Amino acid sequence: MITFDLTFFLLAIPAVIFAGISKGGFGSGAAFAAGSILVIAYPPAVTLGLLLPLLMLIDVANLRPYWRKWSWEDCKLVILGGVPGVALGAWLLAVAPADLLRFLIGLVSLLFVAWQLSKERGWVRDPQQRLGPGVGLTTGLAAGFTSFVSHAGGPPVAVYLLSQGLDKLKYQASTVLIFWAINLMKFGPYAALGAFTRDTWIGFALLAPFALLGSWAGVRLHNMIPSWLFFRITYLLLTVTGTKLIWDALT
């Protein structure tokens, strides 16, 4: 159950705007920080169900400016691999207790920060050669699974797409198409698991304008602000929220 009080709006509005900016202008997978923020105050299943329609709305808004600017061959492999990944995520969501989901979301948050900082310091490098079709399918499986349980499928997709030597525009357009397709796959299983309620749709109606605002801003900020600044904010959000989620899950 969602209580539409001041706490809800103070958490949800910035989180949804952030998700829109991330998905609209920075194909990084950082949009899942919105889920990490909301899971602090609401059960994981409630948060996942609330965010999915909003993320799907952002996906639709982003398709137009990036239409057919993606790398279809790469997208096709990742989307196909996403099918079993979504099925695996649906199974876990059906059997996992809420604290396990909190722990997983918190762990993914901290791993995302660790991965990005490791790349910045040169400890980990993006692939220097094109990864093959098998890796593309495996990437899709990982993205489908992590996206289903935490809306956090971005990192594996980023690694694969960066190995393909895509330019900035084609890379961003490819992430938009891939997650539009994966989020569509998730809708039916989410509905079957009872993730959508009356409160979900009230929340969607209240937050949809802010999701669209974030998407609009992300497309325009794509070439206006440096990526490092956006990621610094992301790292801070994910470190704080990820640590709290793990603490809450264990205690």
Score class of each variant (00 low, 15 high):
115 W>P: 02
74 D>L: 13
207 L>A: 06
251 T>R: 11
218 G>E: 10
36 S>M: 11
171 Y>Q: 09
62 N>D: 09
88 L>D: 00
62 N>R: 04
29 G>R: 01
213 L>K: 15
250 L>A: 11
94 A>Q: 13
83 V>S: 13
220 R>M: 08
183 N>K: 06
181 A>C: 03
107 L>P: 04
16 V>L: 05
10 L>C: 12
14 P>G: 02
87 A>V: 06
112 F>A: 09
44 P>N: 14
41 A>S: 08
131 L>S: 03
182 I>A: 08
3 T>A: 12
79 I>A: 06
48 L>W: 00
113 V>W: 05
228 W>K: 15
124 V>Y: 14
6 L>M: 11
243 T>F: 12
145 F>I: 05
2 I>R: 03
161 L>C: 05
87 A>W: 11
93 L>M: 02
16 V>W: 00
81 G>T: 01
18 F>P: 14
216 W>C: 12
113 V>S: 04
37 I>V: 12
38 L>A: 03
80 L>V: 11
59 D>L: 03
48 L>A: 07
74 D>E: 15
51 L>Y: 07
27 G>F: 01
214 G>C: 09
45 A>M: 03
67 W>A: 15
179 F>V: 03
124 V>M: 14
156 P>D: 03
18 F>V: 06
119 K>M: 08
178 I>G: 01
160 Y>W: 12
91 W>Q: 13
232 R>H: 13
241 T>Q: 10
107 L>Y: 03
20 G>L: 02
78 V>R: 01
88 L>V: 11
120 E>T: 12
12 A>D: 13
101 L>M: 06
125 R>H: 10
148 F>Y: 05
124 V>D: 08
226 P>E: 15
76 K>D: 10
140 G>F: 00
142 A>V: 01
227 S>Y: 14
5 D>H: 06
54 L>F: 10
213 L>D: 03
100 L>Y: 09
94 A>E: 07
199 D>N: 15
154 G>Y: 00
190 Y>L: 07
123 W>A: 13
81 G>F: 12
174 S>P: 14
27 G>S: 09
121 R>I: 08
172 Q>Y: 00
98 A>L: 10
59 D>Y: 08
39 V>R: 00
10 L>Y: 13
45 A>E: 14
21 I>E: 01
81 G>Y: 02
208 A>G: 05
155 P>R: 01
28 S>H: 13
84 P>I: 02
78 V>K: 02
43 P>Y: 07
106 G>Q: 14
233 I>M: 15
16 V>G: 02
214 G>I: 07
236 L>D: 13
157 V>W: 00
72 W>Y: 10
13 I>G: 00
82 G>V: 02
23 K>Y: 08
47 T>E: 03
59 D>E: 09
161 L>M: 05
157 V>C: 07
164 Q>H: 08
178 I>Y: 08
173 A>N: 04
186 K>H: 00
73 E>P: 06
221 L>N: 03
245 L>Q: 00
12 A>V: 04
77 L>A: 12
179 F>T: 00
1 M>S: 09
135 V>L: 13
74 D>F: 04
243 T>D: 14
242 G>R: 01
106 G>L: 05
63 L>K: 06
218 G>Y: 01
109 S>V: 12
2 I>K: 04
251 T>N: 14
28 S>V: 10
89 G>T: 05
71 S>R: 13
132 G>I: 12
143 A>F: 01
227 S>A: 10
141 L>F: 07
246 I>S: 02
127 P>A: 09
91 W>E: 10
29 G>S: 06
23 K>G: 01
134 G>N: 12
207 L>Q: 02
247 W>L: 11
